[in-house]
């Protein structure tokens, strides 16, 4: 069985978010990592390799040339090869175009299982992977916390609002990872060294034959949330404070 995992480079979740001079999100001084949800997918694929169920893992990333750090990280974890779609000159594509670009590369690869994160922690859009499944016309299981790979099929456990669903789909299929899928490993130094020699192929996004010219949606403004002015502290005994709070919630905040 062959596996492809998608791995986007994102800010760490601890990053402080600020705007730059042009009103866009600034990446000055921000540490970048493999999108945590993508890491679960990569780890799951490596576990399947170690269990003898898969023989090859290819990691696909779309981003600026510097996101090859994310590719190398996945290779150090245990992926066999990586493909980086270099988006230089097309940094602000919408989800639809990103999905088209990645899907066009996936069409040239052979795979049975496609892993992705259910969302990326920067844009929180949760679209790209499912759009890719749509383009490739493969079934998916979304937000999965446990999988079992059987003969020609994969079964996933997913948490939906108020219920757990156990869903099976035939391969090839997409599985998007939730946090509880596994615990991604930290690559050891020898593996980091070995990863430097593993194949990392770069493709320019403009040469994929995908139409990048007509976006369907466009980000036109970024803002930080309004700063809170500090809590209105209610004093007194617990009973007094509780009474004052209930009054405030009713008459000031008007939420009860």
């Amino acid at each position: 069985m062959k596996i492809v995992a998608l791995a986007k480079q994102t800010f760490t979740t601890e990053a402080k978010i600020a705007l730059d001079g042009s009103g866009k999100i600034s990446d000055a001084g921000v540490k970048k990592v493999v999108n945590p949800y993508d890491e679960f997918g990569v780890e799951e694929a490596i576990l399947l390799k170690e269990a003898g169920k898969a023989e090859k893992l290819t990691v696909v990333t779309l981003g600026p040339p510097t996101s090859q750090d994310a590719s190398r990280q996945c290779l150090a974890m245990g992926a066999d090869e990586a493909i980086l779609i270099d988006n230089t000159g097309h940094e602000e594509l919408d989800d639809s175009a990103i999905a088209e670009a990645i899907a066009s590369v996936l069409k040239g690869l052979e795979f049975d299982l496609l892993f992705a994160g259910f969302t990326s922690v920067d844009d929180n859009s949760a679209q790209v992977a499912l759009r890719i499944a749509g383009i490739l016309d493969i079934p998916h299981i979304n937000v999965v916390s446990k999988i079992e790979v059987g003969e020609g099929e994969v079964t996933g456990w997913r948490e939906a609002d108020g219920r757990t669903e156990v869903v099976s789909v035939p391969l090839p299929a997409l599985v998007t990872a939730d946090k509880s899928l596994n615990k991604p490993r930290y690559p050891k130094l020898p593996n980091i060294m070995k990863a430097k020699k593993k194949p990392l192929q770069t493709k320019a996004i403009g040469e994929l034959g995908v139409d990048l010219g007509s976006p369907k949606t466009k980000a036109i403004k970024f803002e930080l949330p309004p700063a809170k002015t500090g809590a209105n502290m209610l004093e007194g005994t617990p009973a007094e404070a509780a009474a004052a709070l209930v009054q405030a919630l009713r008459n000031e905040a008007k939420v009860v």
Partner: peptide, 20 residues
């Protein structure tokens, strides 16, 4: 408008086509 970075910022997205 939609939150990004888990609510640490917001972006405004403009629709470029008729339907969405």
């Amino acid at each position: 408008k939609r939150p990004i970075y888990a609510g640490k910022a917001y972006e405004t997205i403009e629709i470029q086509e008729e339907d969405y």
